[in-house]
Write a protein that binds this DNA or RNA. Structure first.
Lengths: 165, 165
DNA sequence: AGCCATTGGTTGACGCATCATCCAGTTGCG
DNA sequence: CGCAACTGGATGATGCGTCAACCAATGGCT
């Protein structure tokens, strides 16, 4: 675990990551919305739907896909619906559920946005890295995601225990 | 520059980064606010001030430090002021300017929060990586930040040109 | 000195993210 | 069957981030 202060090497890595994270995210989002009128969040939802059979997905499935809090998803889908990107339908199997489907406008919007997004990601990230760096990034995120997942399942286990009292 | 579709290697890297970025940021922020009542944003401001001589900094300097949009900074400092973490004072050298200083409460809050933050960063990032991975992360962010900076100065050059017409 | 472009900072409006709460439908268990 | 616990999802309040417009002070240039 290490004592509190960071080593120079750690400090450099953290500081670099922190700065990159903030600026890169805002650059990508800014560019996408300027060019296509779709936010980063919109794009995430729409491309999840685009990749689903029939361009429709259950709310829950969508939530797993994008890993958002349920209320965020609900609010956002509401707004997207009023913008005509998506429609909400009743769910047959579970009548409290909801199914969301891409409208034609939504489909057109994502498709138009995809090229832009890919180009931006290349320009500001992928094209700047060597193959080794790409792999390093993959490994790093793998490690971090594994840790976060562990934490998550631990949470669930604790909840399980509490339930069992 | 490459054609549009991503190679499998690129796709893995981007997808991993994207997921890590979102979850890590929200985890760190959630934990900090739960433990200390300070958001990520608060912490950034407060530690910049803490590291400044006299715990005071000019608005502009603060803006360079945290790299925020000026209106974000202004809004946030306003809120922090009402929470008693910070005070706004007039600026002597430039009377349209502003100087912000840490209050005692603000100072106490950051100091209390720092350990928490460092521990969380270790837990969810630094301790998971090998020294080589730390260095790789530093290099990667360096490359990305350099690219973003280039873009930024290009913007400024364009503005310069437009001015010169 | 006098003017105009620029800059430091604020404000208001608006969309987004989170939290807590709520509701209806579903499931499991006696 | 009937009740309790749980789940999928919606909602309202609140704080945050961005954009555009604004204002006053400044600095440079003639």
């Amino acid at each position: 675990m290490g004592t509190l202060p960071l080593s120079p090497r750690e400090a450099r890595a953290w500081d670099g990551y922190r700065r990159m994270q903030g600026l890169l995210a805002s650059q990508l989002n800014r560019q996408l919305t300027a060019d296509t009128g779709l936010s980063d969040a919109d794009f995430a939802i729409l491309s999840a739907l685009l990749g689903a059979p029939g361009h429709r997905l259950r709310g829950l499935a969508l939530r797993c896909e994008v890993q958002w809090e349920k209320s965020r998803l609900s609010h956002h889908l509401g707004r997207m619906q009023t913008r005509g990107l998506v429609v909400r339908e009743e769910c047959v199997e579970d009548s409290r559920g909801a199914v969301f489907q891409l409208t034609d406008a939504g489909k057109a919007a994502v498709e138009a946005a995809t090229d832009d997004r890919v180009a931006a990601v290349r320009t500001y990230l992928l094209d700047l890295l060597t193959p080794e760096q790409l792999d390093a990034l993959t490994e790093i995120s793998g490690a971090v995601l594994a840790r976060l997942a562990k934490d998550d399942s631990h949470q669930r286990a604790v909840a399980e225990l509490a339930r069992g009292t």
